[in-house]
Nucleic acid binder design. Structure first.
Lengths: 265, 265
DNA sequence: AGCTGTGAAGGACTTCACAGCC
DNA sequence: GGCTGTGAAGTCCTTCACAGCT
């Protein structure tokens, strides 16, 4: 059991070693990064941004844009253009110097890298308030992530359709997930139930989990977990409010009427 | 207008310069970091983890634990112990060598640093499926974040209580937020409405925003934004599924009924 | 002997800045 | 002249490893 990996910072240390390409001390020559390794080489942080670029690009395409410059795209995505170009360079060279990027080409390449050319069935476990909201998201954000199974422990909910899908009992999770080839499990249960649900999902062959329960899940190394933690988000914001309260935003706090040696008042 | 900051990576570059303590080329002496600067020095990544430690510690306290070692706490929080100790060292030295940390002390100190000793009123904008779920979270994850206002553009919803709070019309956002001293705004609207709502929240003096809409918000430098982006999370998971498909995972993909030389069927 | 606290080394990600192509 | 692609430099974060206290 390894703790969950790469969330809101890098990829986990120990865990990474397992999946990472073996240091590759190829006999008879220096390291020869195979073309396939390219994907591995994309920083996790860049992957998340590629998803953002993709959304922005889709918007541009709907507006009929044919090409974009790195600067335009960067502003729309809320990053600086150097970072954007670096991110795009991880997936290849699809721009034209002096011109920019062709929107449709970029969309295609990012979708390919993110694996969006294939559909990923999603199962939502825990049909409470949040589970309802998730199930109703309708095909889930962007196409490509059809919700194909819902589970709850409450027998009264079983059979009732939510967002068009009937709820199954959690006991059937393994069978149903296998049948419907679920590749992503979403945990929206109360905290105490989360680890148990996670274990069942893993047993059912689900390799990726999106966890909304405020619990640190323990999973085997080959399972990828991402978490969305409301409490953490709010507390980080709270920290910033607090910082602002003490800290001297524009100029350093005064000490005896002085600021860094400069007389202030 | 600066794009939103520090999300899933560091703090933004340009933005940070504004708040960061000026490089301090103090006349006549080396850098003298004031004690208060300690908070500034906590890496964003560490702040998010502190929130996780806090939750784990609360659990331990309920179980009656008096002290914990860095190793125990680290395992429970899903990080390694060196990182945990480093994170805790940012807020001070509250452990006892040879023994560990006193649970209650650590809880108190983390709460202090995260600014949880003060309450932060939360307003939720957009009372759709997600907004409902958020409003019903009940006082919001952990105490300290009372939901004190709900807004929607739909006049039919106005006055209806959700999770005990009656919905106000979005037109009244400025007045109500000021009256109820809202410090954190949560955006759960459809994408096209998000930027407009954000602008209104900012106009109402809200300095922290948690954004669930899949849109890159543009905000002034002094406003802190964090986003929760379902589509991005799923797409990052999708990327990992795709990676796994090429690369050699634990066991190589079958080729002609064989797996890495082992007969399969 | 056990465990914390932390400099220092290492690694990942970001930004710079400019060569290279259109 | 304009814009991409990318080594190199810089910054931030993580991990190591051990000194220092109990």
């Amino acid at each position: 059991m390894a703790a969950q990996r790469g969330q809101r910072n890098g990829v986990a240390p120990g865990a990474a070693e397992v999946t990472a390409p073996i240091p590759r001390v190829t006999a008879g020559g220096p390291e020869v990064p195979a073309a396939r390794d390219r994907a591995r080489a994309i920083p996790e942080a860049a992957v998340a941004r590629l998803a953002v670029y993709l959304r922005v690009l889709s918007g541009l395409q709907e507006q009929g844009a044919g090409t974009v410059s790195s600067e335009e795209l960067a502003v729309a995505a809320g990053v600086n253009s150097a970072k954007l170009r670096k991110d795009l360079s991880y997936i290849g060279s699809y721009g034209t110097r002096g011109v920019g990027y062709e929107v449709s080409v970029l969309i295609g390449e990012i979708e390919r890298i993110l694996g969006l050319t294939r559909k990923h069935s999603v199962a939502v476990v825990g049909i409470g308030n949040l589970g309802h909201a998730l199930a109703n998201y309708g095909g889930f954000p962007g196409r490509g992530f059809p919700v194909s199974a819902l589970f709850d422990i409450d027998a009264d909910l079983v059979g009732i359709p939510v967002g068009g899908i009937p709820v199954d009992h959690i006991e059937d999770i393994t069978r149903v997930c296998l049948e419907r080839e679920v590749s992503i499990g979403v945990i929206a249960t109360p905290p105490p139930a989360a680890q148990g649900v996670c274990d069942r999902l893993v047993a059912a062959g689900v390799q990726c989990i999106l966890n909304f329960a405020p619990v640190v899940l323990q999973v085997p190394d080959h399972v990828e977990v991402r978490k969305v933690d409301l409490a953490v988000e709010l507390q980080v914001l709270s920290f910033h409010v607090a910082r602002r309260a003490d800290g001297p935003p524009p100029v350093r706090r005064t000490v005896n009427g002085r600021v860094d040696g400069m007389v202030v008042s």
